[in-house]
């Protein structure tokens, strides 16, 4: 995961529609991650083959 302000080049193989080699065996990656700005990302299963991602953070106390 990167934070806002960072940048990277991520060259990847160009694929064509119908390219059956392009599998995403490692996606989605279930678990909890930290993003920029103290945001927490939690990737979970919806139980029907879909994934759901909760983005959460501490609300500023007034």
């Amino acid at each position: 995961m990167q934070n806002i302000g960072e940048s990277s080049e991520s060259p990847k193989k160009k694929t064509e529609p119908n390219d059956t080699e392009s599998e995403d065996v490692n996606y989605p990656r279930y678990g909890i991650y930290t993003l920029g700005g103290d945001m927490i990302k939690s990737v979970e299963s919806m139980g029907d083959g879909r994934y759901i991602i909760y983005y959460s953070w501490e609300e500023d106390s007034p």
Partner: peptide, 24 residues
Amino acid sequence: GHIFKLIEAWRDRYCELGNLPYVD
């Protein structure tokens, strides 16, 4: 502040989905 967090979430989705080999 909430919209700012949404932008961070959009950014995360752009990076993650864009990294999938079949997503152009």
